[in-house]
Design a protein around this nucleic acid. Structure first.
Lengths: 351, 351
DNA sequence: GTGCCGCCGTCAGCACCTTGACGTGTCGCA
DNA sequence: TGCGACACGTCAAGGTGCTGACGGCGGCAC
């Protein structure tokens, strides 16, 4: 899986870098124990703490290492599609292209299924997932018979699932099912000792041979890292780009980091920075990397979409034609009167 | 790039005009460093500070200078169209002249993609963009396979993205991704020394040979310029048109500028003047002319374009629905029979 | 087996859109 | 002033696409 030289040129996510004595040591040790079993795992931690990295670690350390690792980002898939995405659907009689689709769960047979942002799972899916965990079988949409699937579940979230349960947004029975092997990933600010190792690892991936000056490193270690490892990754990249001298100096760091007020380490899982406050409709949940195929956002109002498209083009053509409708119609390959009528309708609808 | 004599007669945007000792000097220096890398750039600054100019600068200074520069104004495109605009859609029956649309991202292959007003990006597009940045690949609507694209991203906004993140309107992970190389453009009022040079540059483009009287120039330098460079451009043009004497006098300036109360320079990045209501001289609308490099390519076969778009969406919906036309129609907000009819026509046309 | 349910294809009715033709108003030029 | 060129708005005719209803077909439950 080397992305080689892709465009925006990103580093591949680091494979578990930490320092001696890091709190991560105990987490890794826990992973090793856990991996041997087949029990469900629940990873919790802020954005950017590397939940997928640890999910893969559990997979690799388990007896299923040779099987598939299937990541699914629950938050990145429109609710209406989640079901067919997870469970698949039986007959795809038509369409040629798709045909009958395996669900992600079925694809994880013999391997590990990672459900990221499981806190975003809508209630109906929670119920269905629970059934699957109990029966060890999935029943694709439209199909009559269940299909046994042997998979291991690793769930992850940056929400406080217990609070979600208390608020009635997450099923208690599913919660306890997931809670068999809880693994909490500490935020980067609570393990500043890992910062140097991580920084060095990122530098190596950048082919950056200069060193970070001690003063700069000290600043890095003191920063709160609300975006955790991913934020560090970006800062390092930026540092490498911006620094001009023979070494990477504190002056080359972003202002925020230099205006540092030494932050108290967070109190366990108490505060979840920033993004906790979603108000917005469509509450954009932080959905870290790595899962879910592209797929256009459906459902969509096709009629409205086409109206918009048409309107955009008509407006552009009119502008280019300087308001001359005859020319504009030509530009669009439409009859003149057709364009006129379209405009009239539009004006009418507006009123 | 001379637009020569287009209808409303606009000046071409100036190519980076500033005075010696201007704060822009350090910004330009930063651009030079940044340009060498492939990292994402985030431009921030008020309306009219020339974000696109700097985006082009980064492009020209980079190794990609020979490649395309593709500007996209996220705020200027209806939300429903953004997806097909950015990602494109797979081909339809026959291409005609305009044919199957490449997305803007794909068009930026080998070059630079500028996403202006990125703060306006709706949540679903934020998620998709993040994926593209991570994978370096796009998957056009209706197509099943992803396509590798090598591009460099320059994002721009006049919002406070950090605040947007805190408010839950902008994804934290995408934010950190963009923050690799932040570049802040100072408002014109904080660099009054650039005003004379800019004014002279605009006059030259207007073929205006008269000179600005010192008193008028002084007024220009003192004005707050809520609309920044673009506002200055408008004022100069107006001045040239209105002045009748052998020189450009203070009396020819709009009243607002002459009633000047010497304004304190803005306190660093503190306030972002609500560009909505600024009572500019000459009723400067926030973003007239020079902006909006949107403009779909014309001429175009609108009917064919719409057919293609429709086909792509239908194909995608059918796939997601697993061939179930009832569900697919729902996904598209169409009546079931309507969808069936559309399919029938399509099949008929193919034959 | 029988009945129910969901999905599908067809078709006729109808609203809507497109199209071509016509009349008007304006501009420029003889 | 008169004439042609040009662009516009309107309208009636004809076509097109949408809609709702109907019947067929297969799976599943009882």
């Amino acid at each position: 899986m080397s992305l080689a030289a892709v465009a925006p040129m990103r580093l591949t996510f680091p494979d578990l870098v930490y320092a001696q004595g890091s709190p991560l040591e105990s987490v890794v040790a826990a992973c090793e124990r856990i991996a041997r079993s087949n029990a469900a795992v629940l990873l919790t931690g802020e954005t950017g703490t590397g939940k997928e990295v640890f999910a893969r670690l559990v997979h690799r350390l388990s007896a299923r290492a040779a099987g598939p690792f299937v990541p699914v980002n629950c938050a990145a898939i429109p609710e209406s599609l989640l079901e067919s995405e997870l469970f698949g659907h039986a007959r795809g009689a038509f369409t040629g292209a798709a045909g009958p689709r395996q669900g992600r769960i079925a694809l994880a047979a013999g391997g590990t299924l990672m459900l990221d942002e499981i806190g975003e799972l809508p209630p109906s899916m929670q119920a269905k997932l629970l059934r699957v965990l109990q029966d060890g079988a999935v029943e694709p949409l439209g199909s009559t018979q269940a299909q046994q699937v042997d998979f291991r579940l690793v769930a992850a979230t940056n929400r406080d699932l217990a609070a979600e349960v208390a608020a009635g947004r997450f099923r208690a029975d599913l919660y306890y099912r997931l809670l068999v092997c809880p693994l909490e990933l500490p935020p980067l600010r609570d393990r500043p000792g890992d910062v140097p190792a991580l920084a060095q690892s990122f530098l190596r991936e950048l082919d950056e041979r200069r060193l970070i000056e001690p003063e700069a490193l000290a600043l890095l270690c003191k920063w709160r890292w609300p975006g955790n490892v991913r934020e560090l990754q970006n800062v390092i990249e930026r540092l490498s780009v911006c620094a001009q001298g023979p070494s990477l100096r504190a002056e080359d760091l972003p202002d925020d980091l230099r205006d540092e007020v030494p932050s108290a380490p967070s109190v366990s899982t108490g505060d979840r920075p920033a993004e906790a406050v979603f108000s917005a409709p469509f509450a954009t949940p932080p959905a870290p990397a790595g899962a879910a195929p592209q797929k256009p956002t459906l459902p969509v109002d096709l009629a409205a979409l086409i109206r918009d498209l048409e309107e955009s083009y008509i407006a552009a053509a009119l502008e280019q034609a300087g308001g001359n409708k005859t020319i504009a119609a030509d530009l669009l390959g439409l009859g003149r009167t057709t364009l006129v009528e379209k405009l009239r309708r539009r004006a009418k609808d507006a009123a």
